[in-house]
Design a binder for these strands. Sequence first.
DNA 1: ATGGCGAAAACGTTTCGA
Length: 243
Amino acid sequence: MKIISWNVNSIRARIDSVMTVIHKFSPDVLLLQETRVEDHAFPVEYFDDLGYNVALKGQKGRNGVAIFSKHMLEEVRGDFCSEARYLEAFTGGVFVASVYVPNGQMIGAEQYYHKLDFLRDLEKKFAAFQAEVFVAGGDFNVAPHAPDAPRPDYDGIMCSEPERSLLKNIRDAGFRDILEQKGLTWWDYRRSSNFRQDVGFRLDHFYLSPKACGIFKNGEVLRFARELPRPSDHAPIICELNP
DNA sequence: ATGGCGAAAACGTTTCGA
């Protein structure tokens, strides 16, 4: 089973790129973040035509998560938080979740503490799936280790000790970050040399429960998508499980 | 050290993203 996760930074602006990625990889499951559209305006017809089932949790202009699957989508739930930042489902024998953690603005900002709360709640949410085959993919907006940031000593937002420590709690609970050492996933639009020189962060992750780790085959960052026309600032990531 | 880009809402500019 192939699962792709991608922060698309607007599905309406990225629909052609999403179709390119789908046609190249034919994922069983696609987890999207930052779709930035209300459900009634989501371009679902593109996905319907390819035979995908659809679950959406959107809001006007900001946030927005979605799950597409070639398998039936059951037990769809998105009430984890009031914003459109989390959606889970059971599909093809696997529990999946599409996760969009708040960016936190700046260390010490009100949004930063909201981000820490969100990560704490997420740990509890994942714990409920400890004994299941569970794969959470998304934009976690934290660079877990020194090589995941532009400089090893960078300790600003995305790299602060409290943020990293909350993600470590999730790993310590048995959920493996399968893309460690697999490269960066986000490069700032505002300096085109950043991508060329690979100056960015590894913010997009998959967390696999112990049972999911047992059938894990391979995981990669799909860097090529950052070079498509009008790209998202995030690259998609892929997780393959044995059937 | 600062600003740089891109998208959306609602304006002719502002806010947010990370």
